[in-house]
């Protein structure tokens, strides 16, 4: 395996006594898309700022394509901030000209393909663009340099559902061509669709980092209903495969992180009247993780 395209190790950022990012380690390999989820204030944007050198980490290391940040990093790295930064008095075409002069791998044909895809008029000045159009223009610029590393902060904010789908397709196309993508989103469904791995942050800490399909394979709810009151469950709550147990009258729900069949077997041995396994989607896994804390 070659070095990951994006690599964070023990990244920590403190502002005075406030720790915005707390010991985050994360790798994004070539060909991979990682979706970063977390409630507002979880530290996602600060993580991006550190990754891009806009903020100096208090501790930890950052490597892009296996090397620390340097001016040459930015020849192959594209970043789209949550609020697209464009020059208000310049047209979209002017921005493309700037990019043509600044980036070695700038691809004019690709840029015009993307303008058409997002229905953008190159003669429009940035100040005349709506929020969604600004995002689309920033994405056009980002993908026009044929980046190997993409860092996108809420890349579809303000876009209509069709253009949102285009953004996912652009990420998928880039990853299929060997790029590494890290993007944050509040829309769990986008991460579920486009990403192969997910990172969930809460209060500056990385609380989940996993391949999405592996998370879905492991995290289930086993629901058992008994004829009378729930019998003694023994040490089920401390079973390492179990995240937590909820009891309600004659019903037990066990949330598992691994080997749900094994946990179901333990419950089945207590002779429930009924038992079933419920699959959890990423939104439910996310809500569980954020309300639960670390696992």
């Amino acid at each position: 395996m070659s070095a990951p395209l994006i690599s964070l190790h023990g990244l920590t950022k403190r502002y005075g006594s406030f720790t915005a990012v707390d010991g985050v380690s994360l790798d994004v390999a070539a060909g991979s898309i990682c979706g970063l989820l977390g409630p507002n204030g979880a530290g996602k944007t600060t993580t991006f700022k550190c990754l891009l050198g806009f903020a100096k980490p208090s501790a930890g290391t950052i490597a892009i394509e296996g090397a620390p940040l340097s001016p040459s990093t930015f020849e192959t790295l594209a970043y789209v901030p949550e609020r697209a930064s464009l020059y208000d008095n310049l047209t979209i075409a002017d921005h493309l000209t700037l990019y043509r002069r600044s980036y070695k791998h700038y691809d004019d044909a690709r840029a015009h393909e993307l303008l058409a895809l997002f229905s953008l008029d190159p003669k429009q000045k940035a100040q005349r663009l709506s929020k969604g159009m600004r995002t689309a223009a920033a994405l056009t610029l980002a993908f026009s340099i044929r980046p190997r590393v993409l860092i996108l902060d809420e890349p579809s904010s303000g876009l209509d559902p069709i253009h949102q789908r285009h953004v996912l397709d652009l990420m998928i196309d880039a990853a299929a061509n060997g790029a590494g993508v890290l993007f944050s989103s509040h829309q769990v469904g986008q991460v579920e669709r486009a990403a192969d791995s997910v990172a969930i942050m809460k209060s500056g800490k990385l609380i989940v980092s996993s391949v999405i399909d592996d998370l879905k394979s492991g995290e289930k709810v086993i629901e058992a209903v008994f004829a009378g009151p729930v019998p003694d469950l023994g040490d089920l709550a401390s079973d390492p495969r179990v995240v937590r147990i909820e009891q309600n009258g004659s019903m037990v729900r066990a949330v598992t992180r691994d080997d749900s069949d094994g946990v179901a077997g333990r419950l089945f041995a207590l002779h429930p009247k009924s038992i079933r396994t419920i699959d959890l989607n990423l939104e439910e896994i996310f809500m569980n993780a954020v309300s639960e804390g670390t696992h």
Partner: peptide
Amino acid sequence: LELTVNPN
């Protein structure tokens, strides 16, 4: 790309 799902 056809299904809009991750290539991996």
